[in-house]
């Protein structure tokens, strides 16, 4: 009889802290993508199924920008400020590409249906179609293989906690995710657009009566989600240099959605919490069960379990309830 499943507790014990750091790093990326799902869900009560493709288009833009700037599979020989400037440029292009994609998705797959007042499933199916179209346009253009790896900088350990080395990229990604989350949270709470987003999330009809331009808010929300996906794309390329392929967004998208649900979909702070938690759970599961694919399985099981036990997520799910 062949083996079905085995647990490797020793490996988990030995690698616990490095798995924790790694998990938090991936969690930061999940959280940034999760924000896109959460914002759109908060406003429209619909899952933007094509958000994973919004993200991967950004990753392509980052890779192309960096390649044309001379980055490649070896560590670039540049001063730190030159690298930082280049990365900033890549970030801008990544955010732009993702935002434009999100805008197109909204225009093609959502707006015509909204005008007709279509049922929810119709939106979901058209978004799935859109996601397919983008995936296979990329496939058509770039083929089935991932883009050549792009290394951004020499990744050095910054400090050492009890024998666990903490690398620069982990610190950068986690802190950037937290900063972005604070910025978005404050943006939703304080800015005019944020107030509009909250108003539409609470009650679209009343918001319209109060002079909120609902269509504009919806488009802005998609674009905001796209911009954040572009940020996530830069960090994704940083962390997984050879992970940019046409299918690359799909699994990450489902995980980010899981993160959003785990933290409470429609909840900006929940996206961060859910992302970091899911990153940890997935990584622990991967080491315990012994293969990278278990990471995905564990995340899917978490999704089902969360929806069973607490479908509103840890922090509760309502963008409209956020107070200024």
């Amino acid at each position: 009889m062949d083996q079905w499943i085995s647990f490797d507790w020793e490996a988990l014990g030995a690698n616990f802290w490095s798995a924790t750091v790694d998990g938090l790093t991936f969690g930061g990326i999940y959280a940034l993508v999760a924000l896109g799902y959460t914002l759109v869900y908060g406003v429209l009560n619909l899952i933007n199924f094509a958000h994973s493709e919004v993200f991967i288009v950004g990753a392509y833009a980052v890779v192309f920008t960096l390649t044309s700037l001379g980055f490649g599979p070896s560590v670039p020989n540049l001063a730190w400020y030159a690298i930082a400037a280049n990365l900033l440029l890549a970030l801008v292009f990544g955010m732009l590409a993702s935002a434009v994609t999100a805008f197109i998705v909204e225009r093609v797959a959502y707006k015509p249906l909204r005008a007709k007042g279509a049922p929810r499933l119709v939106f979901l199916i058209s978004a799935i179609g859109m996601s397919f179209v983008i995936q296979y346009l990329i496939f058509w253009w770039r083929g089935p293989n991932p883009e050549p790896a792009v290394i951004m900088f020499q990744n050095k350990p910054v400090f050492d906690i009890g024998g666990t080395l903490i690398y620069f990229d982990s610190i950068l990604i986690v802190s950037a995710a937290i900063i972005m989350m604070v910025v978005v949270d404050q943006f939703i709470r304080r800015s005019k657009l944020g107030r509009g987003i909250r108003a539409v999330a609470q009650d679209p009809d009343t918001a319209t009566l109060m002079g909120v331009n609902r269509e504009r808010i919806i488009v802005s929300t998609f674009i905001l989600g796209g911009l954040l996906a572009g940020v996530a794309a830069l960090f994704y390329v940083m962390k997984v240099p050879s992970g940019v392929l046409y299918l690359g967004g799909f699994l990450l998208g489902v995980k980010a959605f899981t993160a959003a649900v785990l933290g409470g979909i429609g909840n900006v702070r929940g996206a961060l919490l859910g992302g970091l938690l899911l990153g940890l759970i997935g990584n622990y599961g991967q080491i315990l069960l012994g293969s990278a694919q278990w990471n995905d399985v564990v995340c899917f099981v978490v999704l089902i379990a969360v929806l069973m036990v607490r479908p509103e997520g840890i922090l509760g799910s309502n963008l409209g309830k956020v107070r200024a």
């Binding site: 249906l113 279509a118 058209s126 799935i128 179609g129 996601s131 397919f132 179209v133 296979y136």
Partner: peptide, 19 residues
């Protein structure tokens, strides 16, 4: 080779024009 692209587009078009 392009069947997924075509069927993806079919989904979008059907949903918009003939759900």
């Amino acid at each position: 080779e392009f069947k997924y692209l075509i069927f993806g587009a079919v989904l979008v078009v059907l949903m918009i024009f003939r759900p």
